[in-house]
């Protein structure tokens, strides 16, 4: 083996993996930029004709498309905010030396490993207006006025779905925050204590700035997950009642299931661009804040 081959043979080992990645991911992804502008309705890709912006026009003209956008934004904002705040709160709590710390960490992480469909079925029963645990519990406490049609009320349904998502995925944020908290050197807290800083001042001036990389990770994971929401919606409400809980990714699914491949590709391209632009802007903003802190 000559010197050049010895130096480069490792790249050769990458070729099979790269080829698979190219064929199964890069090519279809790049293809979306073209097929979003075609009338593709079956898998005969070569027969697709260019139709300009027609798919995008139809998409915005589709019944409930604006509602889907609004629902996606509501879901993203609500779940991101609560996943971060509750996850951070739990992490701070479970970073303390309690006798039940390990047990509680397991308990709070447990929903993450459950199947979304199983969770949706369980919450479908919990949310039932008459026989559901939630309303029965509220009535038991004499809080009848708080008992609601949680997933059949148009105004409530997105918040009820968001609550399930937060319950299920907060454990991930908690684990990431815990890892971040445990990497903060104890010296900083000891110095602050000597300087007379109270717990809140320590949290604001030490914990929060040093935890910012973790917060950033959880923020982007939650936001991207929120913008792409699909599984919990289809399993819990199937986009209903009516189209009240339809989201952008649900629209993509509907388009593909009806063989509107051109329009479905246009919808997923729009979703991709929405995620890309939102993440880029927020990343820029947070990075600046990171430097300031």
């Amino acid at each position: 083996m000559n010197k050049l081959m010895r130096k480069n043979y490792t790249y050769g080992m990458l070729v099979p993996g790269l080829l698979l990645f190219l064929v199964l991911f890069i090519t279809p992804s790049m293809g979306a930029f073209y097929y979003a502008f075609t009338d593709l309705t079956d898998f005969n890709f070569f027969s697709a004709k260019y139709v300009g912006w027609e798919n995008f026009k139809t998409l915005f003209d589709t019944d409930g498309s604006m509602l889907a956008l609004k629902n996606t934004i509501i879901f993203t904002v609500v779940t991101t905010v609560f996943k971060i705040t509750i996850g951070l709160g739990l992490a701070v709590l479970l970073n303390m030396k309690l006798r039940t710390t390990l047990y509680l960490r397991t308990v709070f992480f447990f929903p993450v490993i459950l199947s979304t469909v199983a969770v949706a079925l369980a919450f479908s029963a919990i949310y039932h207006p008459t026989t559901g645990l939630l309303n029965q519990f509220l009535r038991l406490l004499g809080l009848d006025f708080l008992a609601q049609n949680w997933i059949t009320d148009r105004g409530l349904v997105m918040y009820s779905i968001s609550a399930v998502e937060v319950w299920k995925w907060t454990g991930i944020g908690m684990v990431l925050f815990l890892a971040g908290l445990q990497s903060i050197p104890q010296d900083a807290y000891e110095s602050a204590t000597i300087d007379g800083a109270n717990a809140w001042q320590q949290f604001r001036s030490i914990t929060l700035p040093l935890l910012l990389p973790s917060i950033k990770s959880v923020f982007f994971l939650s936001m991207i997950g929120g913008l792409k929401v699909f599984d919990i919606v289809i399993a819990l409400t199937n986009g209903g009642p009516g189209k009240a809980s339809t989201t952008l990714n649900y629209m993509v699914y509907e388009d593909f299931s009806k063989h509107f491949y051109g329009e479905g590709t246009a919808a997923s391209l729009l979703l991709f661009l929405l995620i890309l632009v939102t993440v880029a802007i927020l990343n820029l903003f947070i990075s600046r804040k990171e430097v300031e802190l």
Partner: peptide, 12 residues
């Protein structure tokens, strides 16, 4: 069926 749900909740 979905549109009928919409009609029943007053959305259509």
């Amino acid at each position: 069926g979905v549109y009928l749900q919409d009609a029943l909740v007053g959305n259509k």
